Structure formats: C-alpha cells, structure tokens
Simulated assay, not measured.
Amino acid sequence: MNITAFIGSSREHSNSEMLADHVLNGIPHQNLFLKDLNIQPIHDLRHSKEGFQFVDDDYDQIIQALLTSDIVIFTTPIYWYSMSSIMKTMVDRLSHAIRDERFPQLKEKLQTTEAIILAVGGDEPKIKGLPMIQQFQYIFDFLKMPFLSYIIGEANKPGEITKDEQALTQATLLNNQLKARINV
C-alpha cells in the first residue's frame, strides 16, 4: 500500500508535520513538502476556447503521487480557519489536473484513493476547524474520493502538539488501523 503525505506547512518541523509523523510512525510512506515545490496558482481557462495550458512547474510531482498512492494525507496548519495557502493552491490546481490530457487516468484513480486530513490550529481548532473539514469533504465528494478520517489537533507554538493528548491518541489509533491494513 502506497501512502503519500502532502505537508502543507510553511514551517520546518511544524505541529501538523509532527502529527503526520505520529500517524505514520513505522509505516512506509513518502512526504511531499509543498513549501519546497514550485506550484503556480491556477489560471482558470476551463471555459475558454484554448482551455487549460501546460504549466512548467512542479505540479506533476503532485499528480504522480496521486496516481501511485492508495492513501493520501492532507496535512495542514489551520490558517485563518482554513487550510494553508500552499495547500489551497495544490487543491485549486486539481481543476486543471483532472482535465490534463497527459494524465487521462487521474480522475478515475482518485475515486479509489482514500483521503485523510490532519490539521493543527491554535484558536479552538476542534470547533473552528470543522468548516475546513467540511470543505475537504466537499472536495472529496466532487472528486468521488473516499474520505477515510480526520484529526484536528490544538497547538500554536512549535512542538505544542505533543501536549494535545486527544489528538495524539487519535493519531495512535489511526496508526494502528493503517498498520493493520498493510500488515506492518
């Protein structure tokens, strides 16, 4: 089973990345750090005569990860009550990717790729982060992706996620579930 974690924080060793590390401890996976990729914002040409045009950036790495993963984990800090801007840019570009003639199998593949959300915020995130989870649910519904699970952690300063016992317990449970599925 192939698992990819899209790490959407702009901070090194962020709380959201630490939560992903906890979920994926002992499980083979790959991390894609969105902050290290050159992903251009979407130029929406869906309804124009010429349609979407090729964009020379690193987004093909995202597409390749989506095409080769059985589970994808969207890992993001909660910024202004939503996902990080680099995560949102990645998601926005899916409009282009599912129409990209170079990857005709992508839309169908996404229908069998399970999604997990890991989010960490500092202002009552377990309540105020729920609209973001709903936003992801709508995205997954649109793409017909199975939505496996989500965890919202509470932390602000670097390393504070280690104090959120509820999120860490949920992460351990999810880790055990994933290990059982892949026989690790």
Rank of each mutant, 00 (worst) to 15 (best):
I139F: 14
P41Q: 12
A20I: 06
N2S: 12
H13R: 13
T68R: 04
S14L: 02
I27V: 12
F6P: 02
G153S: 09
D100V: 12
I42R: 10
P41M: 12
Q64I: 12
A20P: 03
L19G: 08
R11F: 04
Q111N: 12
A119N: 06
I139W: 11
I71F: 08
P28E: 14
L174Y: 05
I161C: 06
K109G: 12
L19S: 07
P28F: 09
G121N: 05
K144C: 14
D57T: 02
K144M: 13
Q30F: 03
K88W: 09
Y150R: 00
I63H: 03
S69R: 02
I98C: 08
L168I: 09
H29R: 02
I42H: 10
E50W: 09
L130A: 03
N31K: 15
D36P: 10
L19F: 09
D70H: 06
K107N: 13
A155C: 04
T162W: 09
L143G: 07
P41L: 09
Q177V: 08
V184C: 13
E154V: 03
I78N: 06
Q166N: 11
M18S: 14
T76W: 04
T4S: 00
L174I: 02
L67P: 00
R93V: 08
Y81R: 00
I98Y: 07
M132V: 07
F54H: 13
S95M: 14
S10E: 14
S9I: 04
F147G: 01
L118E: 07
G26V: 06
E101S: 13
H29P: 05
Y150H: 15
L32M: 11
D141W: 01
R99G: 13
K128T: 08
I71K: 02
I98V: 15
I127A: 02
V91P: 07
T112K: 14
L34M: 11
I139K: 05
L19W: 01
T75N: 15
E108P: 07
T112F: 10
H96L: 15
I78V: 07
S85H: 13
D70E: 15
S10A: 14
P131A: 01
A115N: 07
K128S: 07
V55K: 03
P146G: 07
I7R: 01
E160L: 03
Q135P: 03
K126T: 02
Q30S: 11
I62A: 06
F33T: 10
G129A: 04
F52E: 09
K179H: 05
M83F: 13
R181L: 12
N176Y: 07
R11N: 05
L168M: 11
M132I: 01
D60R: 09
E50L: 15
I98D: 03
H22I: 02
I71V: 15
N38A: 15
L37K: 08
H47Q: 11
N25Q: 13
L130D: 02
D123S: 14
T75W: 07
T169M: 10
D141T: 10
S69K: 01
L110P: 09
N2Y: 03
T75S: 15
K107S: 15
